[in-house]
Design a protein around this nucleic acid. Structure first.
Lengths: 261, 261
DNA sequence: CGTCCATTTGAGAGAGTTCAACCATTGTGG
DNA sequence: CCACAATGGTTGAACTCTCTCAAATGGACG
């Protein structure tokens, strides 16, 4: 595994954690120094881990998008969370014996599996990292709650708009978006699975959103001409993401995009 | 505060944790010995804690039902979790500064607030208790995920049936239900808020469920003539609750019901 | 150039909502 | 003890959002 890839993984993790909690230079160095294991690759549309599998290590998504999803016996599928670069999955789920849901890739994904041992050691030696991990977990739960509200109460247009707002903010944490939009390498069917709607209705609603100039779609990217307008139309408020107020953001280091070699 | 009340709180907690993870006699004694703080009472229909409030201690619901809910600016409300006796809320959320949602009582509720210090001390001295707390948190997240599936994919009848199955199983953990039903001291509007439906539609759907002999409703109690039938009609499978296989269940100690003086 | 996959559009059906009225139960004050 | 208000449950009719099924369009790629 090439060296730059590893740095990529450490950087994406450090950036994420730093945005949720305060980390010092030495914390960041510890993250970089920790042997995160090798980066693995997986094709689009395959399962990283499947319902019923024994729980494994913690996953860190380095690049690409994945979905946490559940299926009903009759084939209905619901995505319960979208996993983006920098996301850390299943922290501490080693206490449960088997997965009650699956994680599948939506695009090609690069990821590392971090053993619970490494997580534990980092947590013990670097209390700020431990806190950051806790906060990341609590924020994840908070997002999960917001999704219940999204699907339970919002109209189709609001749901999709809310999802786009959330994705835009979350992707900004790792330098993959700015307030005017982001690349969205997934299909309308994927959006449908996440929003609890059909792909046909997603399509019609996107058309409506374009007509209202809330979004502009062009080759797998979402442009948001007026973020506040979209947020208002979607009843989006970012409090549930529990971000610290933005520091003077350091520009994204080169090569952190989805298009790296 | 009378002595029996305190024992009630310790028992309800011990029972819950023991059902999720293995606890020894000494663990249980530690729980009983720990000063859990005094039991407080709150009327029905009031907020235990509100969105925007600074985070407080961990809540343990001793008796009564409460709801974790979020409201949209225009008044739409979604219940994202139902809190039952024995439920422990907001473990470790001291890492977040303020609540992004509210917790309101549906019935009169008795609860204790446990300081994070006590939780920490118990966790440190009794590793099995620490594990049990972890598992309780992970199970809570798992339920949250299942609710997304419930609201996103299931029909009205399936949603309500699934909710009833979940409540029945969860209430059995603290001796407040058996497979043939449970007391449900909440209104159809409360069910509507949790299911993401209107109370009118809840009413019509309950009627349909009665017609299909899936449930029998009589003065605020749900009788389930055939649990498996209801589970099948609702696509309910209990795996997501992450319960250990039932031990030879000790009968509920007297006075643990909702009707205690 | 044909295949495959995602997007787009149409028409009709259905699940759930809205609004409004009515009923039943319970608690309360005179 | 009764009248009355208050709350929650029940029902009807019209409406609307979203789904289903089906077919057409379009782009990417071998």
């Amino acid at each position: 595994m090439m060296k730059w890839m590893k740095q990529l993984a450490e950087d994406v993790l450090g950036k994420r954690l730093a945005r949720l909690s305060e980390l010092t230079e030495s914390d960041m160095l510890a993250l970089r120094a920790s042997s995160l294991g090798s980066i693995r690759s997986m094709d689009a549309r395959s399962d990283l881990i499947r319902e019923g599998d024994p729980t494994r290590a913690v996953f860190l998504i380095v690049s690409g998008w994945a979905a946490r999803y559940k299926m009903l016996e009759d084939g209905r599928r619901q995505t319960v969370a979208l996993l983006l670069p920098g996301d850390l999955c299943d922290l501490n789920n080693n206490f449960l014996s088997e997965m009650d849901h699956s994680i599948g890739t939506l695009t090609p994904v690069r990821y590392v599996e971090i053993s619970h041992r490494v997580v534990e050691r980092l947590s013990q030696e670097y209390p700020r990292i431990a806190t950051a991990l806790w906060i990341q977990l609590l924020a994840t739960v908070s997002i999960q709650r917001e999704w219940v509200v999204n699907i339970g109460q919002r109209t189709a247009l609001e749901r999709i708009g809310h999802l786009f707002c959330e994705l835009c903010v979350r992707l900004q944490l790792v330098g993959l978006a700015n307030t005017s939009g982001f690349d969205m390498p997934i299909t309308q069917q994927d959006i449908a699975d996440a929003a609890g709607l059909t792909s046909v209705h997603i399509n019609r609603t996107l058309k409506e959103m374009r007509a209202q100039h809330l979004i502009v779609l062009e080759n797998r990217s979402v442009k948001i001409p007026d973020f506040d307008a979209l947020a208002q139309a979607s009843l989006f408020t970012p409090a549930y993401l529990h971000l610290r107020p933005a520091s003077q953001s350091s520009p994204a280091p080169p090569g952190l995009g989805l298009t790296a070699p």
